[in-house]
Amino acid sequence: MSDQEIYKVIGLMSGTSGDGLDIVFCEFEKKDRWNFTIIDADTVPFPKKLGKKLKKSHLLNGQKLSLLDVEFGSWSGDQVKYFLTKKSHSAQAVASHGHTVFHQPSKKLSLQIGNGWALHQSSGLPVINDFRMLDVQLGGQGAPLVPIGDQYLFGEYDYCINLGGIANISMDFDGKRIAFDICPFNLLLNHFAEICGKTFDKNGKLARKGKILPKVLKALNKLPFYKKEGAKSLGREDLEDYLKILELSGEFKPENILHTLVVHYVEQINAVLQPIPGKKPTILITGGGAYNAFFMEMLQTELTENFEFIAPNNTLINFKEALLFAFLGVLRIRGEVNCLASVTGASRDNCGGTVYGL
Score class of each variant (00 low, 15 high):
residue 114 G to A: 09
residue 229 E to N: 13
residue 312 P to M: 03
residue 135 D to W: 08
residue 328 L to Q: 09
residue 251 E to T: 02
residue 62 G to W: 01
residue 336 E to L: 02
residue 300 Q to K: 15
residue 167 A to M: 09
residue 5 E to A: 12
residue 352 G to T: 11
residue 287 G to V: 05
residue 39 I to R: 04
residue 138 L to E: 04
residue 42 D to E: 15
residue 228 K to S: 11
residue 20 G to I: 12
residue 21 L to A: 07
residue 287 G to N: 10
residue 77 G to T: 10
residue 1 M to S: 15
residue 252 F to M: 12
residue 329 G to M: 06
residue 70 V to L: 08
residue 168 N to W: 10
residue 58 H to K: 05
residue 118 A to Q: 08
residue 77 G to K: 01
residue 234 L to G: 04
residue 258 L to P: 06
residue 354 T to L: 12
residue 311 A to N: 12
residue 142 G to W: 10
residue 351 C to Y: 07
residue 52 K to N: 14
residue 199 T to V: 10
residue 257 I to F: 11
residue 248 L to F: 09
residue 224 P to N: 14
residue 326 A to F: 14
residue 217 L to P: 13
residue 227 K to S: 14
residue 190 N to C: 09
residue 335 G to V: 03
residue 346 A to K: 05
residue 350 N to P: 02
residue 288 G to Q: 06
residue 163 L to P: 01
residue 334 R to S: 03
residue 160 C to G: 02
residue 349 D to Q: 02
residue 211 K to P: 00
residue 22 D to V: 06
residue 185 F to W: 13
residue 247 E to N: 13
residue 330 V to C: 10
residue 194 E to I: 04
residue 352 G to K: 07
residue 82 Y to C: 00
residue 248 L to C: 06
residue 91 A to L: 00
residue 68 L to I: 00
residue 12 L to M: 10
residue 129 N to Y: 05
residue 89 H to D: 00
residue 183 C to Q: 07
residue 216 V to E: 11
residue 112 Q to D: 00
residue 333 I to M: 15
residue 70 V to Q: 08
residue 131 F to D: 03
residue 18 G to H: 11
residue 320 K to G: 04
residue 65 L to V: 10
residue 39 I to L: 14
residue 195 I to W: 13
residue 44 V to A: 05
residue 258 L to A: 11
residue 224 P to V: 06
residue 250 G to Y: 05
residue 243 L to R: 15
residue 80 V to E: 04
residue 180 F to L: 13
residue 337 V to Y: 01
residue 355 V to D: 01
residue 102 F to N: 00
residue 129 N to S: 15
residue 182 I to F: 04
residue 262 V to Q: 01
residue 129 N to D: 04
residue 176 K to V: 13
residue 327 F to W: 03
residue 146 V to G: 03
residue 186 N to Y: 13
residue 216 V to P: 02
residue 293 A to I: 09
residue 33 R to Q: 05
residue 129 N to M: 06
residue 148 I to M: 02
residue 6 I to T: 15
residue 17 S to I: 10
residue 253 K to T: 08
residue 198 K to M: 13
residue 150 D to I: 02
residue 3 D to W: 02
residue 139 G to P: 03
residue 41 A to Q: 09
residue 143 A to C: 01
